[in-house]
Design a protein around this nucleic acid. Structure first.
Length: 153
DNA sequence: GCCAACGTTGGC
DNA sequence: GCCAACGTTGGC
């Protein structure tokens, strides 16, 4: 069982919007970074828990808990000419971009801000907090996950 | 809006 | 295969 953190700009797609989806589920499309793709395609397993992180906003931080809810499959937006995520080098025979579905799991009582996370030495090794890190999907250790869950509840 | 850090592209 | 130029991310 692995744990993950996935970043989303709340103005584009927030944790609250995920919860409001009819099936509380959303395909995590638009990822165009190979490392992040590889996590989705090769490592993420159905049922694994995700810290849903809000980035590029007034108060960045973890907004809630989600879970992986599908096996990997091709991101359909790569084939759509009108999509901002269109990739002319991708074909249906050899798709380049894969994704998994993400489903709402649980709310946190409190939003756990980036500022808060930085205060705790228990989280000092988190990849999210290392400088220069820009990956939108990152693994989180069991201890880090539990610690953040505790901060939020 | 700035800028550090990094990923990607493309000429050679 | 190198590497400069360029683009993007994301906190501040």
């Amino acid at each position: 069982m692995k744990y993950w953190i996935m970043k989303s700009e709340p103005e584009v797609f927030s944790f609250q919007e995920l919860k409001k989806r009819p099936k509380k589920t959303e395909p995590w499309n638009g990822v165009r970074n190979y490392q992040a793709r590889n996590f989705m395609r090769d490592e993420m397993q159905e049922g694994e828990l995700i810290l849903f992180y809000h980035s590029s906003c007034e108060i960045p931080g973890v907004a809630g808990i989600a879970k992986v809810s599908s096996k990997p499959y091709p991101d359909s937006t790569q084939f759509e000419k009108k999509s901002e995520y269109y990739d002319p080098k991708a074909t249906k025979e050899t798709p380049r971009w894969f994704l998994i579905d993400v489903t709402y799991d649980q709310d946190l009582k409190n939003f756990v801000s980036l500022e808060e996370m930085k205060k705790h030495k228990e989280l000092s090794e988190m990849r999210l907090l290392q400088r220069g890190n820009r990956l939108s999907i990152l693994p989180v250790t069991n201890k880090e996950f539990e610690f953040i869950l505790k901060l939020g509840n």
